[in-house]
């Protein structure tokens, strides 16, 4: 598994099971970036209530998340969210599409709940870019999404591109070094002919990029890094846009996943090396010549 999937597996499997066999249910689970879900059947076994808590909900609403959710889920979206959560969907198991393809597409769309909510600023930026393109100059609003405690995504549209900036913080020393290598690799990898069309990636440590330098609430310590993606119109043509949004949202998780995987890989190499060295050491062991020791009366001693 190289790429992380945009949909939530727990929602997908639970819905799939409940459609076949409805039963009462009350589960809480999470998704990346501190998103909390609660799936329950408060009224009847066939009426599922799916609620989501997302840290940056207010910002997302400001950038039009509600319209996107309305477009995706229509009447499923509840006007009043469950207490302690930001947004709720009600899924009636008796009114879901009957054919297997439609059904799995429906389940998948529900499983993409978080992705759709977080897609709002990106869609808005793509729209703004289209509007600015005709005027030929100018810049759109700088959108800030504080999706984690100390990290944020900044999205800005200008007349010829959309800039997406991630601020990243590595809690662990080792992670920071791995992260640095990775991010520099991103910059270098673009030189390969196969991925010339990929968006341009810039990485800076400590110094924020020019676009966001004027912001007051930036934290410029040694463990902060900024990754800038420059998306050109070819990356968000109507055909490409959904994929681009799904991937770019998961960038931070993708990065951390791969840092962890490379650590695991290093560990397995280390274990292998140790096992090899141990073999060498064992070969060097001298065979101890066993001499029989006897007492005066001629009896042998044995260890017990």
């Amino acid at each position: 598994m190289i790429l992380l999937e945009p949909h939530n597996v727990i929602i997908q499997t639970t819905l799939g099971e409940k459609i076949i066999k409805p039963s009462s249910l009350d589960v809480a689970f999470v998704d990346y970036d501190g998103v909390r879900f609660h799936l329950s059947t408060p009224q009847s076994k066939t009426l599922l209530l799916l609620s989501m808590h997302i840290r940056c909900w207010d910002e997302l609403v400001k950038y039009g998340a509600l319209e996107i959710l309305q477009r995706e889920y229509g009447s499923l979206l509840q006007p009043q969210a469950e207490p302690e959560y930001n947004v709720s969907l009600v899924i009636d198991l008796e009114q879901i599409p009957a054919s297997p393809e439609d059904r799995s597409a429906f389940i998948l769309s529900i499983a993409l709940f978080k992705r759709n909510a977080l897609a709002a600023p990106f869609e808005l930026a793509f729209k703004n870019q289209k509007a600015l393109e005709s005027s030929g100059s100018g810049q759109g609003e700088l959108m800030e999404i504080h999706y984690r405690d100390e990290e944020a995504i900044y999205v800005q549209a200008s007349h010829d591109r959309v800039t997406v900036i991630f601020s990243t913080i590595f809690a662990d020393e080792t992670d920071r070094i791995f992260g640095k290598v990775f991010l520099q690799e991103f910059v270098d990898a673009r030189r390969q002919p196969a991925i010339q069309n990929a968006p341009q990636v810039l990485y800076s440590n400590r110094d924020p990029p020019l676009e966001i330098r004027h912001l007051a609430n930036l934290r410029n310590t040694e463990d902060t890094g900024y990754v800038t993606f420059v998306l050109f119109p070819r990356h968000f043509t109507p055909a490409n846009a959904p994929g681009t949004i799904s991937h770019i949202q998961l960038f931070r998780d993708y990065l951390h996943y791969h840092i962890k995987c490379s650590k695991a890989y290093m560990h397995s190499r280390m274990r292998h090396r140790v096992a090899e060295f141990q073999k060498v050491l064992n070969r060097a062991k001298q065979e101890v010549a066993t001499t029989e020791r006897k007492t005066v009366t001629g009896r042998t001693m044995s260890t017990r």
């Binding site: 992380l4 962890k260 560990h267």
Partner: peptide, 15 residues
């Protein structure tokens, strides 16, 4: 180690 890697990131989707 790889088993846990995938349980956490693919199935639980937890950081």
């Amino acid at each position: 180690e790889r088993y846990w890697e995938q349980t956490i990131f693919k199935y639980l989707r937890a950081e």
